[in-house]
Design a protein around this nucleic acid. Structure first.
Lengths: 355, 355
DNA sequence: ACAAGTCTTGAGAACGCTCTCAAGATGCGC
DNA sequence: GCGCATCTTGAGAGCGTTCTCAAGACTTGT
């Protein structure tokens, strides 16, 4: 019949240690100007009582809420979840966010917001009012939504924009999209491929443009053409299938495809299978994202690893450590890596003997 | 130069509407006994000002915090995240949790707690003190951790135990593990398989036992043996590979395996490939979890769909709607389904002509 | 029309913490 | 050893809400 133990408050600690509330508060928050001897005494009282300050009360009186809010696209997230496509964005955001937050005594909350809705302002506004987060992390395509960034700026809430280098307020972080696309394309060119296609993401994502740019630049450097080798999808499976079909129909000589998402790469893989093309013998394939899925496809896909977790972790750190007069002019870039698996191989020999 | 707009508080609304704070509070919380006319007046003031109550302040004064805390195993979660194995638990918890919470004006937070640690009490206790959640959702293996359930009971925090039917405090929810294993086994027996093996999960998870039970029962009903056909893994890939090797070495005549996790099934698939066994021609495979991965393996795996999102949603609803004198004697069961894909087929014909 | 309810509204305390500011203790220069 | 600056501690207000409780308005039965 254990009694419901009363909550331990700062007052209890103060009494236990025989000091004022203020002193306990200072010790808890690592404030300066407390004699070591007193500090130890208070700390031991805290330990003895198992005191942990209430987040809500801290938020009420202090200037911080110790909450970082991560915003993701609701529509896309839900679709991916429902269809079990394994977005990985939310997973990776949590991986990077939760751990980094808790390291600094913060908490991370995830909010799903619909970009396409006219209610963005109301939805996000409500979340901000209710939670009063100390910082907000925006992922594409929200990172470039003026409505959202304005709202945050007006409210004076620090925010980080992942996947955006557009000028404006907020900490900007990118994952080296152009460089990654360049790397992937160059790798394919080195393998002897001459017709390297790209299935890009939608135009409203800046990163789609960066990837196209990196691909084009690599092609140009290798003296290869890009005409007719670009298709645009919406990151989803169906759009990837459509794009792959269009690409292979239009370019029978295409031997390599870079897809701007794992789902579209998966679709391309399936389309290749449909057409009797064997990956990687007849067609090489590189995808972006490197979600868990691509390790277990047949063949496992070579992929650009988007360091989402690390980027979010960096964003959290920036937001927490942020000084009011911080300078956000520099764009933080977290490098992506190319993970080579079995979907890439040297280009097939042109007009082989048995042709 | 947009000024930082001052926060809209309940006081502003009260002034705007010309009523007391209390009346606004009643309207906001849908309290009874407010004249419709006044209610409308207040509501319009709320809309006009865009007022949203502060969660922290609500927590401070009221009895509720509007926070539901979902607890997941840290070690396993991190390992899965880092290795990009696609746990899906956290994803699915969020899917079910976030949506259901927000439907009721609640928020969901995810906490990763280490079961194996001696610090469970400290870690979880700190989270509870800081957040003061209105409810906690426990997932395996935490659902059966006495230290944790005791802690919650002592603090008087309602909690739900997913994947546990052990008697004791808390709302209990299961996902029909025994029935699902029975269903999968029966299905394989119907396909003509006579040697149906199982790679079970670790014993400290009750659901491992349930699945074994369902498998045994189905075998008994079909008049099939179970001796030597059981191996135990830890849900991870490596353990699955070990188990599959042991199983196939010991039982060359085994033609079907049920794996208690997608990762172990993936491993079994790989081991079959190593041994020159073709799935499903030579070996049928059914996995538990139905994470995104299994749709894209070659062949796609037949799997038991564990309705995690729905179960968590149910748990959230129970916790929110919970009355103090609630009766938790009934175990809520959310049914799992068998999703048939291409990893199951009729048993190979015994001693075929070309043998 | 009057007593005894019920409905509606509001006033003020309380929640647990940090902020500001003031007072006492301690150190320094001469 | 005195005045001044600095370090250390504490007192009290305030954050935005809901709680309790009381007062006034409105019903109803007779």
């Amino acid at each position: 019949m254990a009694r419901v133990r009363k909550k331990v408050t700062i007052r209890d600690v103060a009494e236990e240690a025989g000091v004022s509330l203020q002193t306990v508060s200072r010790v808890v928050n690592g404030g300066p100007n407390v004699r070591p001897q007193l500090r130890d005494k208070v700390q031991s009282a805290i330990d003895r009582l198992g005191y942990v300050p209430s987040l809500a009360a801290q938020r009420m009186s202090g200037s911080r809420s110790y909450i970082i809010l991560a915003i993701n696209d609701r529509e896309r997230t839900l679709a991916d979840w429902r269809e079990r496509m394994g977005t990985d964005w939310v997973d990776q955001m949590l991986l990077g966010g939760i751990l980094t937050c808790s390291k600094h005594g913060y908490r991370m909350m995830v909010e799903l917001v619909d970009t396409h809705s006219d209610h963005v302002e109301r939805e996000l506004g409500a979340a901000l009012s209710a939670l009063q987060p100390d910082g907000v992390i925006l992922t594409p395509p929200h990172s470039e939504n003026q409505l959202i960034t304005d709202l945050l700026a007006v409210r004076g809430i620090p925010f980080a924009r992942i996947g955006s280098d557009a000028p404006g307020a907020g900490i900007r972080l990118t994952m080296g999209d152009e460089g990654a696309a360049h790397l992937a394309t160059t790798r394919l060119a080195e393998l002897g491929h001459r017709r390297i296609a790209m299935i890009a993401g939608p135009a409203q994502y800046s990163l789609s443009g960066w990837r196209i740019k990196g691909w084009r630049r690599a092609l140009a450097e290798a003296g290869l053409p890009h005409e007719g080798l670009l298709e645009v999808g919406d990151f989803g499976y169906e759009s990837g299938a459509r794009a792959a079909r269009a690409l292979l129909t239009r370019n029978p000589d295409c031997t390599a495809i870079i897809a701007s998402s794992d789902q579209m790469a998966l679709a391309a893989l399936e389309v290749a299978r449909e057409r009797g093309l064997e990956v990687p013998r007849d067609l090489s394939l590189i995808s972006f994202d490197n979600t868990p899925i691509v390790r277990f496809t047949q063949p496992p896909l070579t992929a650009i690893d988007q360091p989402i977790a690390e980027t979010v972790a960096r964003a959290v750190e920036q937001l927490i450590a942020r000084s009011p007069d911080a300078d956000d002019s520099a764009v933080i870039e977290v490098a992506a890596a190319l993970v080579e698996r079995a979907s890439t191989a040297p280009a097939p020999v042109k007009t082989p003997e048995h042709g």
